[in-house]
Design a protein around this nucleic acid. Structure first.
Lengths: 238, 238
DNA sequence: CATCCTAGTGAACGACTGTTGACTAGATCC
DNA sequence: GGATCTAGTCAACAGTCGTTCACTAGGATG
């Protein structure tokens, strides 16, 4: 039962068949329309990536087809599929970092800050599953360009976290370098948990809660280890 | 300057151009020859995967071409590219687990066991970079089948490690479940470090050493946290 | 109003893809 | 030593791919 193609009203365009994600309307200024098409290309790619597909196996034609646009139109917006991928990386992390910055700006004691940050992060992941699924898949698997872009964004994020950790009274004595290592571990654990989450049945709240619970325990262990770090270090290594 | 095709002596076959990884010789029983072709298919895939390519973007024809075989011949060995992928997963981990089992069987005090295990693991990675590169890339990115196969192998590995950790005197009081979490963290850190290594310049020993050093520090932190776990837990969580 | 500008179209290209079926040469088996 | 079995070949198929080009419709601009 194919739905009638008059969803957005408008000028009815042509009678062409559209599998489009977001049927672009004919409203707005020219720049706005262009931007809208660009967005629907990005969204189409994101949507296609939400399934099995990896970015490198995604074809330009698929993206344009799913965005309701002719293949050649792609080149009006991106020179390359890789360019589109880089935009996806960028917008994934800018959104994330904004949110995390908000979360940290709250006037709370440090211990609550971590929990608050975790909650914010998980909230972000649940609200933008497509972006994060993309990141998770391409972090190690993508092209060198994509992989390095993601890696450098994650490094920024790790540094942000390290700054927060520095405020913890019981981490006061840990050196800056070691704090980076600690927050690296934290980010790893969180990202890994998220990647597990992405393969879970979205309805099964019990399983989700378990993954979250285990991740929290792991974080506590890491922080505990970090707190014990400066006191025990001399004995474990020269 | 194309090399003469008489490398393996033999019947000179045909004058056909071969980009083959391992030019299959005509020696041996029929089963042996079949096995040899199968191997060259697997090796060809592995080799192609060593670069940018992800498994899902790898074509059947590429593999056969690079193995020096006609595309149709592929089906005499695997029904599917995915089937080939699963074989790669399996053989990656069986090799690894054998080595790790050897490493653990050495009669050493627990503390040395960990260091020994890490050395063994890194040795494996350096000797079988192609297998591990494949695993690293497909752990999150591959098809569901591949991803789950890898994940379950890693789970086995985590469990093995947890058994070892249980022998540590200062982890005596940590529950079995929590030990799984600890070894999960350890494996995460190691795998991540390895994945970083894969992008490094193989010649730059300084950079490699740094990654390895950081990973070791991270492991020590984790183990420290685990050791402090049972003593502090009551105060951090109900 | 006429002019320019450009996002999107449509058709075509050469190359590559997975899969098929009939075949052949040569090891294996009785 | 003749029949059998099969790994690998060859040719062909219907698709899909990225990229190009000349084009057009219709908003932007003077």
């Amino acid at each position: 039962m194919p739905a009638p193609s008059s969803r957005t009203g408008g000028t009815s365009h042509t009678g062409r068949s559209r599998t489009a994600v977001a049927a672009r309307s004919t409203a707005g200024t020219r720049d706005e329309r262009k931007l809208r098409t660009r967005r629907s290309l990005l969204d189409a790619a994101l949507e296609l990536l939400s399934g099995e597909r990896s970015f490198s196996s995604l074809s330009l034609r698929e993206v344009t087809r799913s965005a309701g646009v002719v293949p050649a139109a792609f080149y009006r917006h991106f020179p390359d599929m890789e360019a589109l991928g880089l935009v996806l990386v960028e917008e994934s992390f800018t959104t994330l970092r904004e949110l995390m910055r908000e979360a940290r700006s709250a006037p709370l004691p440090p211990s609550h800050l971590v929990r608050r940050s975790i909650a914010t992060f998980l909230g972000y992941v649940e609200e933008h599953p497509l972006h994060f699924r993309f990141i998770a898949k391409e972090r190690y698997g993508g092209s060198t360009t994509l992989r390095f872009a993601i890696r450098s964004e994650i490094r920024l994020w790790v540094s942000d976290l390290a700054v927060d950790l520095a405020r913890f009274p019981n981490l006061r004595a840990v050196s800056t370098d070691d704090l980076q290592l600690v927050s690296g571990l934290v980010v790893q654990a969180v990202v890994h948990a998220t990647e597990l989450t992405l393969d879970l049945d979205p309805a099964d709240e019990r399983e989700r809660a378990q993954v979250r619970f285990q991740a929290e325990r792991q974080l506590l262990m890491i922080l505990l280890g970090a707190a014990a770090w400066q006191t025990e270090r001399p004995s474990t290594r020269a």
